[in-house]
Structures are given as structure tokens and as C-alpha cells.
């Protein structure tokens, strides 16, 4: 999906837990996340802290989208 969207010139950041799979299928901007069942969360953290971490991840995603790259990059 990432590639098909990117082909149209739209910048995509692929946020996923298992980076090697993302690398293999050829996403360009890759953002590593927490874990498969909760990429943007961590049930072990208290809700406040969890949300703070989630926000930081999204901020990182936005930075990745604004970063010029010429090849695959893990942020």
C-alpha cells in the first residue's frame, strides 16, 4: 500500500513494529513503533504517559514526512 500511494508523489511514512518487513517490501520512510498488538501504545504505561509517548511518535512521523531522502530510511 505504501508504495502504491508513494508512486503518486504523496509522501508516506510507514509506522510499523517489524521494520525488516517494511524494509523488504520497500517502504521509504519507516518509523519503528512499539509492538505488533499496540504500535502506538503501551498498556504497561499509565494512560498519561502512554499518550505522551504516542504524541512523540506522531511528531517523529511528521518530521520524517518533512525530511528529504533519496533512499530508504529508518527514522
Amino acid at each position: 500500500m505504501t508504495k502504491a500511494i508513494e508512486e503518486k508523489g504523496i509522501a508516506v511514512v510507514h509506522a510499523c513494529s517489524i521494520v525488516p518487513i517494511s524494509k523488504t517490501v520497500g517502504a521509504n520512510r519507516i518509523l519503528p513503533t512499539v509492538a505488533i498488538p499496540h504500535p502506538f501504545g503501551d498498556p504497561d504505561k499509565d494512560p498519561e504517559e502512554e499518550k505522551k509517548m504516542r504524541k512523540e511518535l506522531v511528531e517523529k512521523a511528521l518530521r520524517a514526512l518533512a525530511t528529504p531522502i533519496d533512499q530508504q530510511q529508518v527514522f
Partner: peptide, 28 residues
């Protein structure tokens, strides 16, 4: 992968029509 590609293209069309420049795509 063939289906994923197809969905990606269809989604991309709708995004272009609305002037979207950036996408966050999340996977588990």
C-alpha cells in the same frame, strides 16, 4: 501484495483529489 497494491492505488486517487500531501500509514 497484489491486493494491497490495488487498495493503495485506489486510496491514492482519493487522496490526490483532496490535495493530500502526506500520509501516516500504520501497521501492526
Amino acid at each position: 501484495v497484489a491486493n494491497a497494491k490495488k487498495y493503495g492505488s485506489e486510496i491514492a486517487k482519493r487522496l490526490l483529489a483532496d490535495g493530500v500531501q502526506a500520509v501516516i500509514l500504520t501497521s501492526t
